[in-house]
Design a protein around this nucleic acid. Structure first.
Lengths: 160, 160
DNA sequence: CTTGCACTTAAGAATATTTCTTATTTATCT
DNA sequence: AGATAAATAAGAAATATTCTTAAGTGCAAG
């Protein structure tokens, strides 16, 4: 089991970019500056950002990048299975570039989404009567609770 | 383990309505016609409807019911933990009145969401290093795949 | 290395989803 | 039944996402 990823190393990111470029070529997607930067920004992020958040971050270095391009590009990537939309109860859609099997922890206070692995769960197959439902492709867990940071903040407020 | 609920029996629904009314009184929520009908419609539904879907269904019997009231009422119910918002990648928010621990099957073709139980999973506690993250309140599974109905349709198209 | 063309982008308009404002109505407590 | 705080309807507004169109760009063929 691995702990929540720290900022990705340059080497790992570069490798991921190369693999991304290869996938784009295979899918006949042109390698535009916008696509490369949007993918890189998402791959570097550890917080499952929304289109708006990505746009804000990229605006610094690409002042003419339109929000629509971010939306359109994320949708294109998702259709080609290069990134994933994250299931949330949020009004904005959130995205991740992490394509390996993993699960999510969501803090009910700060709403932060963290990745985690649980390989022994991944290995079990679902009960027979659920398999009847159809062709199962994937199963993933979402854990809800309050993260340590938010717990600590609540404690502080109590003692005030 | 129970299979996906069939249309709820009159008796069970009546019981659920009584329990709902009790919770409303306890929470100082006035028992308006709109609230009762919105809750009843959601409790009867097996498809995790959106506010818009509920509004369409209720419009027949309550032509003056506003969509805003449906949104506002669902939000109120959710804040009082009388219903739940369902995690999806959909642009519209989906709701359910089922408050017992359960999990979801989502068909990638027709997008239908079904409930299922997996009590042996519910019983296991999460690995130690994940428990470090904070105070865990709940864990739930989402299974993706193609339901039998949609599989059958795909087969038909192939043989055409 | 230039030219053509299909694909992509930016900008603003349009649509979709959800929430707010305000005047009116209603449930509940006397 | 009357008072009152809460809830509703209607339309306006805010937020989130997608579409239209004209201009720009990657990349393949010459």
């Amino acid at each position: 089991m691995t702990m929540p990823e720290a900022a990705k190393s340059n080497h790992a990111l570069q490798h991921q970019m190369e693999s991304f470029e290869k996938s784009c070529r295979a899918a006949d997607l042109k390698l535009t500056h916008q696509r490369l930067e949007i993918y890189r920004e998402l791959a570097q992020a550890t917080d499952h950002p929304s289109a708006e958040t990505l746009h804000k971050r990229l605006h610094q270095s690409m002042p003419t990048l339109s929000l629509d391009t971010v939306y359109r590009t994320l949708t294109t990537f998702e259709q080609h299975h290069l990134i994933k939309k994250v299931e949330t109860v949020d009004s904005q859609a959130h995205y991740e570039a992490q394509m390996q099997q993993h699960h999510h922890l969501i803090c009910d206070t700060c709403k932060e989404i963290m990745d985690f692995q649980w390989s022994s769960f991944d290995a079990v197959s679902v009960p027979e009567d659920i398999r009847q439902w159809g062709a199962i492709k994937n199963k993933s867990i979402t854990i809800y609770g309050t993260c340590r940071k938010c717990q600590a903040l609540k404690e502080m407020k109590k003692t005030e």
